[in-house]
Design a binder for these strands. Structure first.
Lengths: 159, 159
DNA sequence: GCTGCACGCGCAATAAAATTGCGCTACGCC
DNA sequence: GGCGTAGCGCAATTTTATTGCGCGTGCAGC
């Protein structure tokens, strides 16, 4: 499933994670090889699943989504089927942008956005009414302190 | 600070959010204008801050980061300076990938990754020892149920 | 109801990038 | 020492990204 990535692969991943739109020419220059093999490496990394895709990062607030909220959800049942049903519910809900299943106290944590509080309130009502939802605790985001790409490749500990 | 985006701008943002590496030619085709004005619009959206940047999405697990954790942090002081100090602390910590300041019960929520539990334990020890940290509650991520781009542009509610 | 102006589009030309085909070299295995 | 594989860089070709410019549209002032 995983092979050993060399220094060049790791540099490529680091650069791509930081700037998904870097040109292959520039990337090649930074990692110290010529463009063709560089592009081949990128394609290979994509194929092998090291790179899942690319995204432009938009400014939610500027686009009218002034409210960001984390919601901690407890279900009344942790049966496989019920967990899956909840995930389905969440997947269909556009205000939910991320959903993570957790161990321990809380079953799921959701990152949600909404244009305003009223819309968010409506959403919470739906959420609370969803199958097997026992309890929802929401926390309004005041502001974002850090938002980095997912993987700190400069930290040791690879395969 | 914000202008009115037309349908074409919104389509552009939607496409770019979904695929940050789409070519301008393809993007132009999808939004129904020719490449030159399309590129000019993209540049304008970047300039104006609607687009913050681009990122490649990496597979944390495949890269040796098997542990993802949410950490809810309470501080013993909410003084401006202390909040800021905590943010600084967090910014310097590579295992913390996201940090959000919240209203209510919890002061901050962190999304963290680590190569393994031991490394994460070490980190929590540091975290707990950080200035004014009163309490840290962590929840291990079992799996990700949904991970979408930040803004649901297909939902109404824009400026 | 004209005239001038600002805005945004598409066309055409030019500069860059991305891709592809291929020969060359280093290295591990016979 | 010869053989096969993997990965690199060069050179040619195809696509894209960019830039300069003329055109048509809508609007404000006259």
């Amino acid at each position: 499933m995983s092979r050993n990535l060399d220094e060049i692969d790791l540099k490529i991943l680091t650069e791509i994670q930081a700037d998904g739109r870097i040109t292959n020419v520039e990337l090649a220059k930074r990692v110290g090889i010529s463009p063709p093999p560089c592009l081949r490496r990128v394609r290979a990394l994509e194929e092998e699943g090291y790179i899942h895709g690319y995204r432009g990062l938009l400014d939610a607030r500027k686009l009218g989504f002034d409210v960001t909220v984390f919601a901690a959800v407890h279900l009344s049942s942790q049966a496989e089927a019920d967990l899956r049903a909840f995930e389905e519910f969440v997947r269909a809900e556009p205000l939910v942008r991320e959903c993570w299943m957790l161990s321990g106290e809380v079953d799921f944590i959701l990152k949600c956005v909404a244009p305003d509080m009223a819309t968010f309130q409506d959403f919470v009502t739906h959420l609370t009414a969803a199958p097997h939802v026992r309890n929802v605790r929401t926390s309004l985001v005041l502001h974002n302190s850090k938002y980095e790409a997912a993987v700190p490749l400069d930290v040791r500990g690879r395969r």
